[in-house]
Amino acid sequence: MFRNFRTDIETILENDPAARNKLEVAFTYSGLHAIWAHRIAHTFYKRNWFTIARLISQTSRFFTGIEIHPGATIGSKLFIDHGMGIVIGETCEIGDNVVIYQGVTLGGTGKEKGKRHPTIGNNVVIASGAKVLGSFKVGDNVNIGANSVVLREVPPNSTVVGIPGRVVKRDGARVGDRLDHTQLPDPVIEMLRVMQKEVSELRLELEKEKRKAREEKRENEPANL
């Protein structure tokens, strides 16, 4: 457990351009503190000391604003940026090298028992305010756009945006830089572009019909005289 502490600090230094040194990261990054507290709470949870585990996790929630259930399984090199308002459920599983921004919920959809939270693959970015709800898998190398609501399985190498979340890119290069989630495709803008194209095509067709009508009118004028 403690061997991961140095890796956690180095992960932040690699991913956050605002991080200046290890001392600053260790003392001021609430996302890091939440991860450390979770590692301790999870150790107690695996030994069936559930009350102690929950006390640790709730204390961490009070100080960091990040709620990670002690039963959740977290891989290496998780980077929680800003972190306020993040909720990670009991049966959630998170892979390696995952980035989670503030306001994200990895939750369930009801009161069912057993596995009820998502499984997040490796190299996944979950942008601000996104909700991933239910027991399904989010594949490796997935980008989930800000404020998206994901309710079903996501294939690897995909980009998901919208409410409900839908795949807008798959099996291709990532959209922009891995951490630059502002460059994810916007389905509303894409729809407006399609509509604009259709309107332009209709205008061209209308102009053609008008020209055709004028030509027919000129051709018929001598006959009418």
Rank of each mutant, 00 (worst) to 15 (best):
G83R: 01
I74Q: 06
P156L: 04
V98G: 00
E93Y: 03
S148D: 11
P156G: 06
A72N: 09
F136E: 12
S148A: 15
S135K: 12
K113P: 02
F63N: 12
V149Q: 06
I144F: 00
K77W: 00
M84P: 00
R116C: 04
G145S: 11
K169E: 13
F79A: 05
K77F: 03
T59I: 02
T159E: 08
V132H: 02
I68F: 05
G129K: 13
T91S: 10
V150I: 13
V104N: 00
D96I: 00
G139K: 03
V154N: 08
V154K: 08
I126N: 04
T64L: 04
I66S: 07
T91C: 08
F136C: 09
R152Y: 13
P164Q: 11
G107Q: 10
I52P: 06
V132E: 03
R116M: 05
C92G: 02
G103K: 04
H117G: 04
E67L: 09
G75A: 05
A72V: 02
I88R: 00
I126Y: 01
A146S: 15
S128G: 15
I163A: 09
I120N: 04
G85H: 03
H69Y: 11
G107N: 11
V167Y: 11
F79D: 06
V132L: 14
I56H: 07
G103D: 03
V150A: 06
I88M: 04
R152K: 15
I56D: 06
G110E: 11
A127T: 07
G139E: 08
K77S: 14
G139F: 05
A53W: 03
G114K: 13
G83S: 06
A72M: 09
A127N: 09
I86Y: 00
G108N: 04
S128P: 06
K115R: 13
V124G: 01
G107L: 12
S148E: 09
A72W: 01
V98E: 01
T109K: 15
D140A: 07
E90M: 01
L133E: 07
I120M: 05
H82Q: 15
A127I: 08
G162D: 12
I94C: 07
K77R: 15
N157R: 11
I100T: 01
K77L: 00
G121E: 10
V99S: 06
G139L: 02
L133C: 12
I163Y: 05
R152H: 15
H82V: 12
Q58S: 14
